[in-house]
Amino acid sequence: MNNDNFGFPSHGERLLQAQNRRKFSFPATLSSTSLLEVNQNITRRRLSNVSDVVTRKLSYTIGWKATQIPTQDIISQGRCICGQYIRRRLRRSGLFNKKLGFQRIRSVLGTPSMEIVREVFPAVMVLGDELERMHPRIYTGVARQICRAPSGEFHSAETITLLLGAVGRDLFRSEITWSKVISLFAIAGGLSVDFVRQGHPEYVPKLVDGVSEVIEDELVSWINENGGWLGLNTHVLPVTSNFSPLEWTTIIIGCIFGLFVLYMLLRFIFFYIVPKIYHRLTS
């Protein structure tokens, strides 16, 4: 199986058409000064998340809302999407190898979550590539942008999840959009390239852990309200009953060709088959 695209059906052309219609206007801003102001109320935030979960479960029990996607499914799917995005970014940079610690992501292989990841990841790739193309300075040399060290080198793996949490809070402070969610993956991908080049490939798995925590703390409710990770496909390829000009042209040509074939068939029957049958009957 190809690690880059999982052997997906080729609908990249539709995704590329969609990205041309739906350009991102959001450039992620990475400021080491603001991002290093880590919120000291993480524990209270987690307790608040627990309270939200209890409230949602109570609502579902008394029939206020339909049952939503389990929180753990959203986190594990997002974790796998992030891991695959990082893997692909490292491959593009010629830095990927099998010793970078992605083995834990394999635990979702063959599960329903993996099917969702396979369906969503082509859109993630297209939108991530578009973001990196539009804002190359943001998603390259990310470590120097968020680390106070002059070389941008991290000296502790524990710092990574802390800073990614700060990035997530800054990123989703005003609003949450799919473009910002993909931007989070692109930031993690840029950091993975920096870590490997700095000689710290052991830091790469911590990026997946950090993104997972951001998803848990900041995004679970929003992703649930927007159709789960499959909602990303709806965002990229909105459901519509309108045909594109190319589709209309194909339909018209197909109809004309079908009518021509029908005309030739009827002509053959009336001018060749029917006279022979008539001749036999009258002879």
Rank of each mutant, 00 (worst) to 15 (best):
Phe121Ile: 12
Arg137Leu: 15
Glu130Leu: 07
Val117Phe: 02
Met134Trp: 01
Gly110Ser: 02
Gly110Pro: 05
Ala149Thr: 11
Tyr139Thr: 01
Leu109Ile: 15
Glu130Arg: 13
Arg148Thr: 13
Gly94Glu: 10
Ile105Trp: 04
Gly94Lys: 08
Leu109Gly: 05
Lys99Ile: 06
Ala123Met: 03
Ala143Ile: 03
Phe96Ser: 05
Ser151His: 06
Arg92Gln: 15
Pro122Phe: 05
Arg88Asn: 15
Glu132Lys: 14
Leu127Ser: 11
Thr111Arg: 11
Glu153Val: 12
Asp129Lys: 13
Cys147Thr: 10
Phe121Lys: 08
Leu100Lys: 03
Arg137Asn: 12
Arg133Leu: 10
Lys98Arg: 14
Phe102Gln: 01
Ile146Ala: 00
Ile116Gly: 00
Leu100Thr: 03
Arg148Trp: 10
Ser151Ala: 14
Glu132Gln: 14
Gly141Asn: 13
Gly110Glu: 02
Ala149Arg: 10
Ala149Asn: 07
Asp129Glu: 09
Gln103Ile: 09
Met114Val: 03
Val108Cys: 04
Ser107His: 09
Val142Phe: 01
Val120Ser: 00
Ser93Lys: 04
Val108Tyr: 03
Val117His: 06
Gly94Leu: 10
Met125Ile: 14
Phe102Val: 00
Met125Ala: 13
Gln103Glu: 12
Leu109Trp: 09
Ala143Glu: 01
Glu132Trp: 03
Val126Cys: 08
Arg87Tyr: 14
Arg148Ser: 15
Leu95Ser: 02
Lys98Ala: 14
Phe102Cys: 02
Ile138His: 14
Leu109Phe: 12
Pro136Trp: 13
Leu127Met: 09
Val117Ser: 00
Ile116Tyr: 02
Val108Met: 07
Ile138Ala: 11
Arg104Gly: 13
Thr111Leu: 08
Asp129His: 12
Leu127Asp: 10
Val117Trp: 00
Ser113Val: 03
Met125His: 05
Val124Ser: 04
Leu100Gly: 06
Leu100Ile: 15
Lys99Ser: 09
Ala123Asn: 09
Gly141Arg: 04
Lys98Asn: 15
Gly141Ser: 10
Gly152Cys: 07
Asn97Cys: 10
Glu153Ile: 12
Ser93Tyr: 02
Asn97Pro: 04
Glu115Val: 02
Gln103Cys: 07
Gly128Phe: 01
Glu119Trp: 02
Met134Gln: 14
Thr140Ala: 07
Gly128Ile: 03
Gly101Arg: 04
Arg144Glu: 06
Arg87Gln: 15
Thr140Lys: 09
Ala123Asp: 03
Phe96Glu: 11
Val120Leu: 02
Val120Tyr: 00
Arg87Ser: 14
Lys98Asp: 15
Pro112Glu: 07
Asn97Val: 01
Arg104Glu: 14
Val142Gln: 07
Ile138Gln: 12
Val126Met: 14
Glu115Ser: 08
Ala143Gly: 12
Arg89His: 13
Leu131Cys: 07
Asn97Thr: 13
Ile86Ser: 06
Val126Ile: 07
Ser113Asp: 09
Glu130Met: 11
